[in-house]
Simulated scan of single mutants.
Amino acid sequence: MNIAKMIDHSLLRPELTTTDIRRGCDIAAGRAVASVCVRPSDVELAAAALAGTGVLVGAVAGFPHGDTRTSTKVAETRELVEAGADEIDMVLHVGRLRDGDAAYVHDDIAAVVAAAQGRVVKVILENAYLTDEQKILGCRLSERAGAHFVKTSTGFASGGATLADIRLMRATVSPHIEVKAAGGVRTLDTLLELHGAGATRFGATATEVILDDYAARERGEGPTAAAPAPDAGY
């Protein structure tokens, strides 16, 4: 099992400096993870730092609240693609989903998918604010709008990925739609449990801890001690 290729190394906290972003890209490249997920202003920096490494550059749109106008999300997505983003993690409009405004939510997502010009789009539902019925609706609308992933959380709300949510999301979308877990994925055991429930990609800041633990277990050394986790941002 290639755990590294399931991880999107998250570099989204507001206090991160350009030095922090470069260091995070070095970690991502050294560990050969799937991608880094960076703030919009850091896409060019990450693209340059990761050129030739095989690590993708992901960027967020409408982050973290999802309540910007669709036209703003579209313009942002186009700029991100031009700057070198390979994947887009967008936040749907949580309030409109809670309203049951299916047309608005669908069209908002579909517009971003079109603006991404074939790049992978992951739709963040922000499950902490939703009922199960709203989560199901959000997943179905995301699939109908052409998204490639449904994703649990931004990592900045009151809650993150849960086993129940991963199972619900996996059961709701078609097999070709993937599920990304984010928010609170700080240990290998958590990642493996969520993977068993159907998640195939994971947003994480504790990338090194998770991969060091996996390597230790592969060597038969048992679990390693977990490092303190940041308060927010996956």
Rank of each mutant, 00 (worst) to 15 (best):
I177N: 05
A29T: 14
M169S: 00
L56H: 13
A147V: 02
H9W: 02
V113E: 00
D231G: 13
A145D: 04
I21M: 13
F149P: 01
R22V: 12
D20S: 10
T207H: 01
R78Y: 01
T19C: 14
M6L: 10
P175W: 13
D89Y: 05
T162H: 02
Y129D: 02
A102D: 06
G66S: 05
E87A: 04
T17I: 09
A111E: 14
V185Q: 07
V38R: 06
P223W: 04
D67A: 09
I109C: 02
V91A: 00
A199H: 10
T190C: 06
I166Q: 10
A206C: 08
K180H: 04
A75M: 12
V33S: 01
V36N: 10
A199M: 06
V179P: 03
S174W: 05
D212E: 12
L192Q: 14
R219K: 11
D189M: 08
H9C: 00
A128V: 14
P230Q: 12
E221I: 13
G184H: 03
V112L: 00
E218N: 12
T154N: 06
A161F: 02
T154Y: 09
S142G: 00
T200A: 01
S10E: 08
M169D: 01
G100C: 13
A206Q: 08
A51V: 10
P223A: 10
H93M: 08
A181L: 06
A216Q: 02
L97G: 00
R13E: 08
G52A: 08
E76K: 06
L137F: 02
A114H: 15
P40A: 10
T18N: 15
F156N: 01
L168P: 00
D231E: 15
E87P: 02
A75K: 05
T152S: 03
Y104D: 00
Q117G: 07
D20W: 03
R69C: 09
R69Y: 12
S71G: 14
G183P: 11
V185K: 13
E221M: 11
R23L: 11
P223H: 06
R39H: 15
S35L: 00
A48Q: 14
I3K: 14
K122M: 04
A145K: 02
A199G: 00
C37A: 09
K151N: 05
A229L: 08
T190N: 04
P40Y: 06
E82T: 11
T200G: 02
A182F: 10
S71L: 07
N127K: 09
A227C: 14
V185N: 05
D89W: 03
N127R: 13
T72G: 10
A32K: 12
G58F: 00
F202Q: 04
S158V: 04
C139W: 15
R39T: 14
L211F: 10
I177F: 07
L50V: 05
I21Y: 04
A46D: 07
R98S: 09
H65K: 14
A102C: 01
Y234K: 10
G203F: 04
A226Y: 09
